[in-house]
Design a protein around this nucleic acid. Structure first.
Lengths: 337, 337
DNA sequence: ATTGTTTTCGCAATCGGTTGAAATTTATGC
DNA sequence: GCATAAATTTCAACCGATTGCGAAAACAAT
């Protein structure tokens, strides 16, 4: 790589010291107007750019945020990244992305990577596999601000940003009941994830409100297209199949719709389906999918803003009080229900 | 932030010099086995991690790759990022993501950002708005290796990785003809993009092969869901509407299908549609969409590998010979055609 | 001309690690 | 026991920028 222009180059050419150049460039009052303009002109001419690495070393800060995320190839997460990058950009931070690919092992390595890269703070949504959180604790022990989003854990002393899973689920199921569904299935996420728990309990309480018996056999673990399709196939072939379906995400909901059509069932005439996420898929599928919008972009924004706030008030006060921010969700009623 | 353990801390505790610590940690032969193990043990005990920033400064390298991309929230691009991150990860590089959001202005700022962040190399897919490429030329002038992917430009002396747009388009249109379509429309991307040109000319030549007249009125600019839907609406209401549609991407194809259904046309009975991308959407839509797989993951992999190769042979030989790698595409025939 | 102020600028240390060369310690040979 | 070689370790400069403090230069006042 070509050697970049340094402050020294300017200093030599002008017969000045590097200190003077440095101060001139940042309008230090000690520098006379003549030399200041001379310096600035030459700097511009040479295309000088301060070496961020040197500044990083001196300031012990990289203006970089580490992002550990299960997988980018998922509409919800890419929307979140979008929101984060937006906030980071506006605050002159850069974002380093590390995918865990839903692998615990990889995630542990990712936490080491953010450490060696000396990021100023970390945004995390952990993998489905993750049951042990000591690698994140290590970040916190190193006093690196960490904000968890979407997939969060209360056991760690860290900020959280989540969608209002409970209320979203409640609205969705309530809506299904109001549309006449008596038996409503829930395609759930793993219960060790907060989103899994929150959405299930929203589902549960909405049933309760309408005095509908909670039937454990109508709750199945199915948060991917394949697993949901398989589960839908089974459940829809029962003689007493449910007429309402609340899925933990859009992919899962679309699998239900697809399988129903396959089995000759009409949506929304025979069964009604509501998803969760409001991805592009939801608006495009046939029939258009009712869903709960969880505002990924806003969630990303908020998570990043929260992290930046922690970075500003860098001194970790004792005791550290974690903040939990809940992003409102909204029910979007479309043709599938 | 808590002060990290430095080499100096270890040196003081062991009554040695920093040089010795440094050498001991990297198994320099000059260091005696005793001190080496002592150093390593203490380092492990203290949880010492070398300060990457200091190394960055010394080596004038950050082991970081800048990625400038229109928008993450697009299946194709997220698949590409996935492939890139995979390769970067395996080679101990990190990826910094900068979105242009299809904005030229933002993109220019992004190129400055990768410069100030002193990334070792840059991967670029430019925005639709971009007509002037001098900001990329500046990167090249700074001798920062740049690899363009998907959206590429021949005018710059830089490597390129692209999908085989021409052949993919050719296969798609050829397939439509073989299924009996005589009149085939093309929903195209802007012609200043290589993908727009390549896919159009594949379309053109496939028609030519079958002696089908090229009708300019059947080529419309429509590479988003909305624009495609609108265009489909108009074109399908012509009395002599085409029976075959080749769309420049899946979104566009799905819009066509959707609009056709709306107008009471059956797919694939009345019209046949083929997209380009092979996104998740394609497999999920109704009917399942025939499409050209452009292997985003592999494309990302290859682009990153190419960049890493340039980083290794850092000395930019003169004359610099740009490499253009074409990733094979594959026609996937599903129900929509 | 001398002293006192101001203005303007340079020295040198610092951030954390690396590395060529010099210095010190230890081992070897006679 | 002493010279020499070999094995260890330290010194000091360096990467690029910042900054407290001291110094030189310019100017004013006596």
């Amino acid at each position: 790589m070509k050697r970049q222009v340094t402050i020294k180059d300017i200093a030599v050419k002008l017969g000045l010291s590097t200190s003077t150049i440095s101060r001139a460039l940042k309008d230090h009052p000690d520098i006379s107007p003549k030399t200041r303009t001379a310096v600035k002109e030459l700097a511009a001419l040479l295309g000088y750019r301060p070496n961020r690495i040197a500044l990083n070393l001196r300031n012990n800060s990289t203006r970089t945020i580490g992002l550990i995320i299960p997988e980018i190839e998922h509409y919800f997460f890419s929307a979140i990244i979008n929101g984060m990058e937006e906030v980071a950009y506006k605050n002159d931070y850069s974002v380093m992305v590390f995918q865990s690919n839903e692998s615990y092992k990889r995630e542990v390595i990712n936490t080491q990577a953010v450490l060696t890269n000396r990021v100023d703070g970390v945004l995390v949504s952990f993998s489905k596999e993750t049951k042990d959180f000591s690698h994140f604790q290590k970040l916190i022990d190193n006093e690196i601000p960490v904000v968890f989003f979407d997939r969060v854990i209360d056991a760690l002393q860290a900020d959280q940003v989540v969608a209002d899973d409970y209320h979203g689920a409640f609205m969705a199921v309530n809506h299904l009941v109001e549309r006449g569904c008596k038996r409503i299935a829930h395609f759930a996420a793993p219960q060790h994830l907060a989103i899994g728990k929150g959405r299930l309990s929203g589902y549960h309480d909405a049933l309760l409100k309408h005095n509908i018996h909670f039937d454990q056999s109508l709750v199945v673990l199915a948060d991917t297209f394949e697993s949901a399709r398989k589960a839908a196939h089974e459940i829809l072939r029962r003689p007493d199949y449910p007429t309402g379906f609340f899925a933990v995400n859009d992919m899962s909901a679309i699998a239900i719709v697809k399988e129903a059509k396959q089995l000759g069932l009409k949506v929304p005439d025979d069964i009604r389906v509501v998803g969760f996420e409001n991805s592009k898929l939801a608006a495009i599928s046939e029939p258009e999918l009712s869903t709960v919008d969880q505002f990924g972009f806003e969630l990303g924004r908020e998570a990043c803003l929260m992290l930046l706030k922690r970075l500003k008030s860098s001194e970790r006060e004792d005791p550290f009080v974690p903040i939990k921010k809940v992003i409102k969700t909204r029910l979007i009623v479309r043709a599938s229900s």
